[in-house]
């Protein structure tokens, strides 16, 4: 596990010469941050997507995706225009165009969302984004800014497509972390404070995203994030 997770191995920041002295000191310190050892986080199993149902033909699948795209754009139009009858002359072509574009430009990935896990995720995520914003505001306003920035790798185990993109975006809204790059099999995360246990925080988020996309083995749903990953 330690070999997969090389903490602060590459501080590819602004060139240090451009920084004020105190910041330069900090950004150099980030090469060798103090912090807990991360060899202990246990991996929890993530299962792959369920296989496609063989009874549904390719044409039916495409039609279903198109219907979804049209439903979403219709909903957006109705919300934006308050469904006035005179808006439909523009609305029907606009809805059709947006729906077809959305259908044509997004790749056909299959994923499903577990409704209960989604609710739980929304509540947790709201709280975390408040914590994240307060944390960054506190650091910005403090007289001596409390920063120990640097990069770390987190190996990705979520399947390609929506779960990975969702995971990367959620990382950026969590306290102290920002997804900088999806590279090969891992996400490169910038952390404001490498003294925190970034790896365990990311493992907790990964578990929640896996539950959201219904990718955990069934028996695991009732539990909490694996081990010390909470």
């Amino acid at each position: 596990m330690n070999a997969m997770y090389r903490k602060g191995h590459d501080h590819a920041g602004t060139t240090t010469a451009q920084l004020p002295v105190r910041a330069r000191e900090r950004s150099l310190r980030a090469f060798d941050p103090p912090g807990p050892d991360h060899g202990t986080t246990p991996a929890f199993p993530i299962r792959p997507f369920l296989p496609r149902s063989p009874r549904e033909s390719a044409l039916r699948r495409r039609l279903r995706r198109l219907a979804w795209a049209l439903a979403v754009t219709t909903g957006l139009w109705l919300v934006l225009t308050e469904a006035g009858p005179d808006s439909l002359a523009f609305g029907i072509p606009a809805i059709a165009l947006a729906g077809v574009l959305a259908f044509a430009t997004t790749p056909a990935t299959r994923w499903r969302i577990a409704p209960l896990a989604a609710l739980r995720f929304a509540g947790w995520f709201a709280l975390q984004s408040v914590l994240g914003a307060s944390d960054v505001a506190r650091r910005a306003l403090a007289l001596r800014m409390d920063l120990a920035p640097g990069f770390c790798d987190y190996p990705l185990r979520l399947p390609q497509g929506a779960p990975r993109v969702f995971f990367a975006n959620a990382i950026s809204l969590l306290p102290g972390t920002l997804s900088a790059e999806l590279e090969g099999g891992s996400v490169i995360v910038h952390s404001l404070d490498l003294r925190r246990d970034t790896h365990a925080e990311l493992a907790g988020l990964e578990w929640r995203v896996a539950a959201l996309f219904d990718l955990l083995p069934r028996a695991d749903h009732a539990g909490s994030p694996a081990g010390g990953a909470a």
Partner: peptide, 14 residues
């Protein structure tokens, strides 16, 4: 904040 990456934290979250 000292560099581009830390600044992005401030922008996205706050």
């Amino acid at each position: 904040f000292p560099d581009t990456f830390c600044r992005l934290h401030a922008l996205t979250k706050a």
